[in-house]
Nucleic acid binder design. Structure first.
Lengths: 230, 230
DNA sequence: TCAACATGTGACGGTTACGTGACAACTGTC
DNA sequence: GACAGTTGTCACGTAACCGTCACATGTTGA
């Protein structure tokens, strides 16, 4: 693939004119581009193409951009992409919510093409090394990113979004000790300032759910360091 | 507490009041801080101190922040630092120029201290992806920094944070004799005032754990000098 | 053999890090 | 608008951990 090194940008917007405009400009700037017109198409494109950067419109039919963002961040390939929320609103609360949901950056309409491209470039520089896909398994615990489902043995466990992502992070590298900071960065997203003790609380809740049907505690606390799976 | 592991932040601003304010807050947040009042000082500080994060004011006498940014990114130590442009202007063209010049982030005055610190932390995390350390082995003892685990033979041993770091230091250079002072420096951190006899106590505790499942004492006491592994 | 010094180690109080229940804010739903 | 679900923060209790001391033991040199 001659173009494999060229960064791939996924544009998600329901307005075709907007798609065409962005697509044209980004291609002119030297990126590869794929597009999606709604959340489902976006999720599909992410799974199939594994883009490096996702430009995600706030207003989408069916699933809101916010919800799509949340779902993307819960999938292995989506987690490794930088998500830039694009919004017509400029209220601070939106910005905060966008970043809290796991977006890596936020850009407000109207914006110039130059700014957009600069943002894309800046976020590309921050990309993490790509990780694997597929369902994760540690011991008798199984996490399926696609169906958003967690099971222990035969039991299906119900987790909130945050705990789901937390478990996902822990399971992705079994044994690895994550510091609270690293988990905040990974699970909650960057550019957000949350007390590290919050991680403890969520680990506690996660443990409670994982232990609800009996069994060993699969999460190891490493005093002075953080948490690890297995 | 201000040991070499504490991130170093370089603040570049021509207003002394601003320098003092930022310096105070960043120190309170646990960072080490150095300051520079213009581009030349900044370049010098970068070369000499190798900061992890640079807070770069847009408006500087002589060289503009933009130009300083460009020059910094052209030096070896500057390339390794995250540059956060600080600007009173909010025009998008500035943001674009800042990011395109190689700045890693951009913050617009007025900003809250919490936001600034969050940005600094976020950029630090981005900068230092978890260094996946290689497991250390001496004899039948194995220490894995990644999973924070110590085993002797098949037995998993439990160590407190300090003993873990102590063992790590000893194992990193098998045979090397460490003075108590050197161990204090390495394990406890610089600028800390602790009785050297404390090292003896921790070595004793470490020995006790290592010997708990039988086997030879892997730590050698060198009378008048210190301790060594193997 | 003895004094002087270096090291080993049990005990102890003080501190810190962690687990967790409670709570308020907020969301989406009916 | 009542309601259930989720989230981040706080306060409190507890157990682990830490640094120091005191004394025991070992080593050195005269």
């Amino acid at each position: 693939m001659a173009d494999a090194d060229t960064p791939l940008v996924l544009i998600v917007d329901d307005e075709v004119a907007q798609l065409a405009l962005l697509s044209y400009n980004l291609k002119a700037a030297g990126f590869r581009v794929v597009t999606a017109k709604d959340g489902d198409e976006a999720l599909l494109a992410v799974a199939e193409q594994g883009p490096d950067v996702i430009l995600l419109d706030w207003m989408l039919p069916r699933l809101s951009g916010l919800e799509v963002c949340r779902q993307l961040k819960a999938t292995p390939s989506g987690r490794d992409a930088a998500i830039i929320m694009v919004s017509a609103r400029s209220e601070e609360s939106d910005r905060v919510r966008g970043l809290e949901t796991g977006a890596d950056d936020y850009i407000v309409k109207p914006y110039s093409v130059a700014e957009l491209i600069a943002r894309v470039r800046a976020n590309l520089r921050r990309l993490r090394p790509t990780a694997t896909g597929q369902a994760l398994e540690v011991g008798d615990i199984r996490l399926d990113p696609d169906s958003h489902r967690v099971t222990r043995g035969e039991q299906v466990l119900h987790l909130g979004p945050t705990e789901f992502r937390l478990l996902g992070a822990l399971m992705e590298r079994p044994g690895k000790v994550w510091t609270r900071e690293a988990l905040l960065d990974r699970v909650w997203g960057r550019d957000i300032y949350i007390d590290t003790r919050t991680v403890d609380v969520h680990v506690g809740r996660l443990r409670k759910t994982l232990l609800s049907q009996g069994g060993e505690d699969p999460i190891r606390t490493v005093r002075g360091a953080g948490y690890a799976m297995g």
